[in-house]
Design a protein around this nucleic acid. Structure first.
Length: 518
RNA sequence: GGCUGGGUAGCUCAGCUGGUUAGAGCGCGGCACUCAUAAUGCCGAGGUCGGCGGUUCAAGUCCGCCCCCAGCUACCA
């Protein structure tokens, strides 16, 4: 092994006050596929997810239910842990901001920033709406005839001042811009990077990093009247999970800086501006990449709680099947863009690509093998140019997929795999093994062998996307579980002629509409 | 308003630093095949490449202006 192959990927920690929805599943899915891919590719992977459990809203929700915040978060964070199993996610750790390890970590980071003079005490002043429990910028307010101001929500606001600690973010603008410049792929996609650069170029103000208006959070060391700002608290989870503040040993040495923080576009700024600034200020290396993905709409409509059209990932899985959903979410849309979830599109992908292209390919090939080759991997003769070309295409997929995965180009990776799947179907028709059966049985064996090898490679590279289904497909080829990493790509580990195979079973059934239609 | 990215076949989109008849998938039409999950393969249908003007021997591909769409324009997460 040349150099350490390690990969650290994170999801945001999800706010426990939310109910898990498709957005959460989507973010974590992308990370899961990357984590699985890297593991199969020989990397030592750490895949982290978790829950953000502090803040005023949580405190209030707990109060409303008459339970203490810790009991409340214990309960609601479970919903996020349940989703992991439903989606077949393979996180290596699950962090909660209410854990002791995290409190130690955040306070250590705070002390570090304080010692370096990056945090100072001052007053936070602004227009506050008691009704909305939020501060508003003056530009957001509307002036009423009587001279008072009103929030965008229509709520009255008042000018309030409270003591607060501030982080000297204003001092980090130039350094951030230099960092972005030296690390052009730090923020992906490119369009998001532009937005962030433009935002930072516009100048930064110091950031209020403590609150005194509620208690549910990590206390500021040495000043219990203050609770740490939720984002400083939340972002730190990424280093807590690798053992911070112990930077000299164990996981921190192995995994930090993280290779990728996967986030939704709504929280890009926190990850691409505040977080690297906090870290640089504390003398800790920033992560290598932040990728901001897009949002889903539902049948063309924006998703919102008030519209009641929130998509529940569990319902999707029950209706379409887990791997079909995993496939759809990463196939349908160029990763980074917004996408639309629709029943019609889902069924089109399921039937057109999974059932017809891939499922049927495996079924037609394996049925012929089962019926005409004594139910065993066929023996093959010399390969023709056509055979060779087909095999080369199958062997070569990994290179293209790897390139795409390294920039989170999931849909492109899948597209390139499908090019080979379609080529296989074309090869089957061209070679017509059902004719060779009568004319040249030995040649038929060679053709079916080539196809079985192609299916093996296709299944290998698709494992990260559809682990359950590809496991079945590899079972049909009698590939042992130890022979399913990318080390087994190529001739050296080709199928062994004569090995008995089980009777084929369909891996991707077609989706049939109910009589009623929905 | 400012900044950024877009407007290419019915739909979703590729088209790198300008150069032969503008591509893919889906959908549609026709043909072939019958191993397979009413699956597959082949062929085709001709889109003023948002509009106008310009640079060039040559422009979706560069420049200018205009129209339309989306995102960003700081401290709820």
């Amino acid at each position: 092994m040349a150099g350490p192959k390690r990969y650290y990927v994170t999801t945001p920690i999800y706010y426990v006050n939310d109910v898990p929805h498709i957005g959460h599943a989507y973010t974590t899915l992308a990370c899961d596929v990357l984590a699985r891919f890297k593991r199969l590719d020989g990397y030592d992977v750490k895949f982290l997810t978790g829950t953000d459990e502090h803040g005023q809203k949580v405190e209030k929700s707990a109060q409303d239910k008459g339970v203490d915040p810790q009991a409340f978060t214990d309960q609601v964070s479970q919903r996020f842990r349940d989703l992991l199993g439903t989606m077949n996610f393979t996180n290596d750790d699950f962090i909660r901001t209410t854990e002791e390890r995290h409190k130690i970590s955040v306070q250590a980071l705070w002390d570090r920033l304080r010692e370096k003079g990056e945090i100072y005490l001052d007053n936070y002043a602004g227009w506050y709406s008691v009704r909305d429990e939020a501060f508003y910028a003056e530009s957001e307010l509307t002036k009423k005839p009587d001279g008072s101001f009103v929030a965008p929500t229509g709520a009255p606001v008042e000018w309030v001042e409270e003591p607060s600690y501030f982080f000297r973010l204003s001092a980090w603008g130039e350094k951030l811009l230099k960092f972005y410049d030296e690390n052009p792929d730090f923020i992906l996609p490119k369009s998001r990077r532009n937005e962030v650069v433009s935002f930072v170029s516009g100048g930064l103000q110091d950031l209020s990093v403590s609150r005194t208006t509620f208690k549910w959070g990590v206390p500021v060391p040495g000043d219990d009247a203050h609770i740490m700002y939720v984002w400083l608290d939340a972002l730190t989870n990424y280093i807590t999970a690798v053992g911070f503040p112990d930077e000299d040993h164990g996981e921190f040495q192995t995994y930090w800086p993280a290779d990728l923080h996967m986030v939704g576009k709504d929280i890009l700024r926190f990850h691409a501006v505040y977080w690297p600034a906090f870290l640089m200020a504390a003398g800790v290396e920033p992560p290598k990449r932040v990728f901001a993905h897009g949002w889903w709409t539902n049948e063309g409509h924006k998703i919102s709680k008030s519209l009641g059209n929130v998509i529940d990932p569990i319902e999707l899985v029950e209706k379409y099947g887990l791997d079909a959903v995993r496939y759809f979410l990463l196939r349908e849309v160029p990763f980074g863009n917004d996408g639309d979830f629709s029943h019609a599109a889902m069924v089109a992908r399921m039937n057109g690509e999974l059932a017809n292209d891939l499922g049927n390919l495996a079924q037609r090939v394996l049925s012929m093998v089962n019926k005409n080759c004594d139910g065993a991997v066929p023996r093959h003769g010399d390969f023709t140019a056509d055979d060779q070309e087909m095999l080369d295409a199958a062997h070569g997929i990994i290179h293209k997929v790897r390139e795409h995965m390294d920039v989170q180009g999931f849909n492109h990776a899948i597209e390139d795999i499908w090019v080979v799947i379609r080529a296989c179907n074309g090869y089957v028709d061209r070679q017509a093994p059902w004719k060779l059966k009568k004319e040249d049985p030995a040649r038929m064996g060679t053709v079916l062998y080539v196809l079985a090898e192609c299916i093996r490679h296709i299944a290998l590279v698709l494992q990260p996307f559809m682990p359950g289904s590809m496991s079945k497909m590899l079972d049909l080829l009698e590939i042992s579980t130890e022979h399913r990493t990318f080390d087994f790509i190529g001739y050296a580990h080709a199928l062994e002629p004569g090995r008995a195979l089980p009777a084929p079973q369909g891996v991707f059934p077609r989706f049939v509409e109910d009589e009623k239609g929905d």
